[in-house]
Nucleic acid binder design. Structure first.
Lengths: 139, 139
DNA sequence: TATTGTTATACTCTATAACTATA
DNA sequence: TATAGTTATAGAGTATAACAATA
């Protein structure tokens, strides 16, 4: 059956999960993609725009618009890299950290609700399997 | 880590799998979405456009364009429903069936390659888990 | 009145090409 | 020459609104 194909299942799993996460994020003024950017910026050492884009596997031109939006909301700030003025380092603001913290709870709850039909062991195996199939990127 | 979130994993699992399937389908003149339509039409009893759309969880206006394209390629045919002239029944042509058959092999191989990093048991469990999380739709 | 197919349209997401500034 | 950020633009993919035909 065509709707049991892996491509279809990935697409619609993502769509259904997004239907759970997006309303939860909305009170915090961000969407799922912006959550991803905030989250990837939550590192000990600040990242450049390009580094952040590579980790999320999105184009650097896409990252420009995302950082523009988040900066406009006061959730991140750009500052020039001290040693290489071609680079913009992007950092969470205090408000950005608070938003990320609250949004992370929303995401955790949405994932839990989404996985609720599965036994806990299977849910964990699903996570692990997906994680092996989509390795982290961008060093 | 943000790139371990389920939404991110679903999105990029789909993207990576598509990178495997699309080049394989290309010689047959269809893409992954068109494969989905051909595949959903491969039923004992023909489906209307709306029924096909519901099973694939796409809008009926989207289905119009998909059927237009597939009809233009000679892979499906429209004919009026005998008892309800509002409906278009959509059926695979002989060439459509042949294309679907070849494309199905491509999809099987791509899925196998994609899942190769996982032990067979885990791959099967991933399929089953996803299938429970994204139940079939549209009766 | 409701349903099916259709058309026109608009919106979201994303990438490519070309430019600027730095290196 | 190459890299990082930016801008303008275009292409997928999708849905909403409005309409025609039919029920």
């Amino acid at each position: 059956m065509s709707t049991r194909r892996l491509v279809h299942l990935f697409k619609h799993a993502g769509l259904r999960l997004s239907e759970l996460t997006e309303p939860g994020l909305e009170p915090y003024g961000i969407d799922g993609r912006e959550f991803g950017v905030l989250s990837v910026l939550n590192t000990p050492e600040p990242l450049s725009q390009l580094e952040a884009a590579q980790r999320l596997r999105i184009d650097r031109t896409t990252m420009v618009a995302m950082v523009d939006a988040l900066e406009g909301k006061g959730l991140v700030g750009r500052r020039p890299h001290p040693g290489d003025r071609r680079k913009n380092m992007v950092e969470l603001t205090e408000r950005g950290r608070e938003t990320l913290s609250a949004a992370t709870r929303v995401m955790d709850e949405a994932e839990e609700a989404f996985l609720a039909p599965l036994p806990a062991d299977d849910a964990q195996l699903l996570r692990d399997a997906l994680s092996r199939l989509v390795p982290p990127s961008g060093g």
